[in-house]
Design a protein around this nucleic acid. Structure first.
Lengths: 378, 378
DNA sequence: TATAATTATGTTACCGATATCAATTATCCG
DNA sequence: CGGATAATTGATATCGGTAACATAATTATA
């Protein structure tokens, strides 16, 4: 069906004739009867302008709806006060909170965020990073663990703080704030095994690289316990439909008694599928999600999920970037963030307890690593 | 639980000592043995540079991981080739496709997109729009129908094409590509009434302004039919949980036999709630979503929803902005986009048919308006 | 009231690209 | 081979702000 278009002239038309040249400080200055320097001061250091002048400038600005041009300022100050953020996708709600955390912190310190998405593709990422650097961002936050060789070279030569979030990259570029997805998956799987589950499946999706880290962790655990590995995945995005589909496929093959899902969407799809297939959750089958999105609250029973500190990751990455900017010094800085259990009835109470214990143990081990690392550096 | 931090020095450390001054065209030029003008040409009009020179420049750029600074270019060319896009929220998947449509079209014509979010708040929107204008965007796409008076003034004085999408604003700033949400809701409601439903409820959310447009349309229809209006809403975002909650509330009050939801998330929440409350869908209760997101596929039965052409809205807004930029002429331009029915078993086959008919009728009426408007202008 | 101290404003150079025009070099053809 | 033409490169001004210093206006103080 084609869009239906009505071109209609309205009362505002007289304003809309041809493109107007945007006013500049000079224009305001002339109107007020000062030089552009005074108007510049009005914006950057109002107290250095006489009250009377300030009022007159204010009036003219108000009247003209004037907004100063930040472009020459970026050149002059050789700092844009902008931080670039590249996420893989806007259709993945995981990143919504990351964005909020990043932006919240940026604003707190007087920075802005330029946001781009890479579509889970390293070449698109290359493009977007180049674009952000070409706008002279003062720092970069990246959320995918892999980059093209050219991107790596550019990033190392960029001379600005760079933070990688979500996962911990093997060769960090500078700052890294992430989760040990693999270890988390191992511990979760072990907890389910200890709780008596013997047919634990992993539902993934081939789009996201972090999925594979978790899958690796899952495989380690089942191998360690001498159990059969049951991995199911699907090309493309991981969503409700994927979960639904993978459940059906799994049931035809070897019916699992527990499913660890790569994320909450897949897990919700599984849960919905269970209602259709009349599977009792968590008795017949326990379902564990990943991320702890709000969607977990929606179902009955609520989805049990591994909650990731997404907002905090954004905040922390930003804090660290700004710290390095203010110090004028680039430094390597790795931060491992711990995950928590988002309680929900898709796992038994005993299982939830076991998972909690395992995650706590993992956190403890990491803290020990921390101490050792400190000694190593000292 | 606090994040666990490990600061570790790695093999890349030697590169990371202090902030490096970013290289400029001049630096490349010196290395190659030409003037910066030649390097500038290398990027903007490669064919005007001798093959041999081109190769040498290429090598140096490759080696230095050089990315040209676009900031002075924006000043010099007095065009940024950037279009600003402001959406209310990244946690609303409705906008993911809009973004894709906008960006896809932008890239096609050599433009970039600067993306910001306003958190459904006109004052935040004011900030973000000002920021985008301060970066000298060549055009703006806004997705909320209301703006502060200051924003209105600034937009009218900005001298760049501005497109408003999603809804059709009462006083359009320039370009508008939107949906007649109110009329669509009226027609949907009427279709359900004609199908025999007598207790039709509307589930909204108080965050989103478009919700109210739809609510208005719903109210018109029930009033027209002499039925009781059953509006339920909740402060805050509209999501699964909201739908769940509103269903319970509605059932305690006057159990509805049909629910029109402000969006698909609320509708999914309702559907999940039905499974808990043992309500038969669509026999006891039919559920209509809004937007036609992919989430509609996830449930059993699939969610019946009014699909909005989100990607097309983005594409169209961008096309029209670029057209005006190339023409160097600002013009009012309103486009009404039609909606379609996304089939799903949460409404009976007969109901789905009726809704389709009503929507088709609406599209016809709009086409007539189009003809009249053309005559009016001619 | 004169002079110093302070406040307010102005002047000039510069940030790093590109537009424009000028100069140089290479190529062609009779 | 010489001059014309085309291809390539260079020189200079400019975009619109801000930094840094200079000057003018005001106030404080002796």
């Amino acid at each position: 069906m084609l869009p239906i278009s009505i071109i209609r002239r309205t009362s505002l038309l007289e304003i809309y004739t041809s493109m107007i040249k945007r006013p500049k400080l000079q224009d305001i200055a002339k109107q007020v009867g000062v030089t552009k320097m005074t108007v510049s001061r009005f914006f950057n250091d109002p107290n250095s302008v006489a009250l009377k002048t300030r009022e007159r400038i204010s009036e003219v600005i108000e009247e003209m709806g004037f907004i100063p041009n930040r472009v020459p300022a970026i050149m002059s100050k050789s700092s844009s006060k902008c931080i670039g953020l590249v996420i893989p996708s806007f259709s993945n709600l995981v990143f919504a909170e990351v964005i909020d955390g990043v932006e919240e912190t940026a604003v707190k310190y007087g920075y802005s965020v330029l946001l781009m998405h890479s579509g889970y593709d390293v070449h698109q990422e290359e493009q977007k990073i180049a674009e952000l650097i070409s706008y002279q961002v003062d720092g970069l936050i990246l959320s995918e663990p892999e980059h093209t060789p050219l991107t790596m070279k550019r990033l190392l030569k960029a001379g600005i703080p760079i933070a990688e979030i979500m996962s911990l990259p093997k060769v960090p570029l500078g700052i890294a704030c992430g989760i040990e997805h693999q270890q988390v998956a191992t511990e979760t799987t072990l907890a389910l095994i200890e709780s008596g589950r013997r047919h634990i499946a992993y539902f993934g999706a081939r789009m996201d690289k972090r999925t594979y880290e978790r899958q690796e962790g899952y495989l380690n655990a089942v191998k360690q316990a001498g159990l059969q590995s049951l991995v199911y995945d699907e090309i493309g995005r991981s969503n409700f439909t994927t979960g639904h589909l993978l459940l059906k496929r799994a049931m035809q093959h070897t019916p699992p008694d527990a499913i660890i899902c790569t994320n909450d969407d897949v897990a919700m799809g599984v849960l919905m599928g269970c209602q259709e297939l009349k599977l009792k959750v968590p008795d017949d089958l326990s379902i564990i999600g990943y991320n702890g999105l709000n969607v977990c609250e929606a179902s009955t029973p609520k989805l049990c999920s591994i909650a990731t500190p997404r907002r905090m990751m954004g905040q922390l990455a930003m804090e660290k970037i700004i710290a390095q900017l203010e110090a004028g010094m680039l430094q390597h800085d790795l931060t491992y963030l711990s995950v928590t259990l988002r309680a929900g009835g898709t796992a038994t109470a005993a299982e939830q307890q076991k998972i909690k214990e395992h995650l706590d143990k993992l956190n403890l081990v990491m803290q020990q690593n921390l101490s050792e690392a400190r000694l190593g550096v000292a």
